[in-house]
């Protein structure tokens, strides 16, 4: 917001000290305080997980005993572990084969979904955004409606199809419907429509074919839209609960998100570390791609 300088005139730090108006300084301090408090509140669960994974099993059990084993008193917590250790991390990496299976399930599922969307959603969005053909508006409207339906509405229809195709209990049961999720098409569409028509006309005059235009103009110029749509899809894949619960009865196909609640109280250290590990990939990607994410979220909201 600082870019457009809406509040700059009244709120640059210099002015504040210059004319020494206590009220304004106080207001600024309050703003900072509120924002800092909100930010801390938002990230505190992550901090909780970090602390928990660096804590020994014994220490965590001592603090959380009342919750986990119905011990006397109330649960307590520390900001920093008294005896920090990496034993949980080692334990998770070496002694928990289920974790690995399910971690890889999540990774396979997300990667397959994203590749699938690159193949199907990107051209789809490009076609909808840049071409006129009969039925285009209808398809676009349909996509928007489908995007708004919650999973519970399409759960039964999807199940019936997947069952008929014999895909229940395989990762494909999660991947295929996700590949054709229309939210990504919608988001990329927004970005593709912003490419100026002149560029495409110029390419056509120079003799570029339609496919060439899509690959050499559409992809690079719509890259930020594609990235942000795929990124949002990746986050969605990492936190899916409803779909795997409905379509995967076989534990070997479960993603990580279903494994976490299964870890029992006696392994609380492991539970912490596994939760943190499940969060690591999305969080890392979030950190690297937060500009794209912002652009994507924003693109969905602006204009009609």
């Amino acid at each position: 917001m600082d870019k457009d300088g809406k509040y700059e005139i009244t709120n640059t730090g210099k002015k504040c000290t210059y004319n020494g108006r206590a009220g304004k300084c106080f207001g600024k301090a309050m703003t900072e305080l509120c924002l800092a408090a909100a930010a801390l509140f938002m990230v505190s669960p992550v901090l909780f997980l970090v602390t928990g994974s660096l804590m020994g099993d014994g220490e965590a059990k001592a603090y959380l005993g009342p919750v986990l084993f119905d011990a006397e008193g109330f649960a307590t917590w520390r900001l920093l572990p008294r005896y920090p250790t990496l034993r949980n991390v080692v334990g998770l990496l070496l002694d928990s084969p289920e974790f690995f299976t399910m971690f890889w399930n999540t990774m396979k599922l997300s990667t397959a979904t994203i590749v699938g969307q690159l193949v199907f959603a990107v051209p789809g969005a490009w076609g909808l955004a840049r071409y006129e053909f009969p039925g285009r508006k209808l398809i676009y409207k349909l996509y928007v409606i489908l995007m708004l339906l919650p999973f519970q509405v399409v759960m039964l229809p999807e199940y019936l199809v997947l069952d008929r195709l014999g895909l229940i209990d395989t990762l494909a049961a999660i991947v295929l419907p996700a590949v054709f999720s229309t939210f990504s098409v919608f988001l990329m569409y927004r970005f593709f429509t912003e490419i100026p028509e002149e560029i495409i006309c110029a390419a056509r005059v120079d003799g570029a074919g339609e496919l060439q235009i899509c690959v050499w103009i559409g992809l690079p110029l719509g890259a930020s839209g594609i990235f942000s749509a795929l990124f949002l899809q990746f986050l969605e894949c990492c936190s899916m609960i409803e779909q795997p619960v409905a379509f995967l009865k076989e534990k070997t196909a479960w993603p990580l998100a279903l494994y976490l609640p299964e870890i029992d109280a006696s392994q609380v250290g492991l539970a912490f570390t596994a939760s943190l590990a499940a969060l690591l990939a999305p969080l890392l990607l979030f950190w690297m791609g937060k500009d794209y994410l912002e652009a994507g979220i924003t693109a969905a909201a602006l204009k009609e």
């Binding site: 600024k28 924002l35 909100a38 930010a39 990230v43 992550v46 997980l49 912002e294």
Partner: peptide, 26 residues
């Protein structure tokens, strides 16, 4: 109104969006 630090706050506020539901169930 936050000026230069707005970017950091914005990222911090967005963190929960990236956190899978299962990770915070505990």
């Amino acid at each position: 109104q936050a000026g230069a630090r707005a970017k950091w706050y914005k990222s911090a506020l967005l963190v929960p969006f990236a956190v899978p539901a299962a990770s915070v169930a505990l």
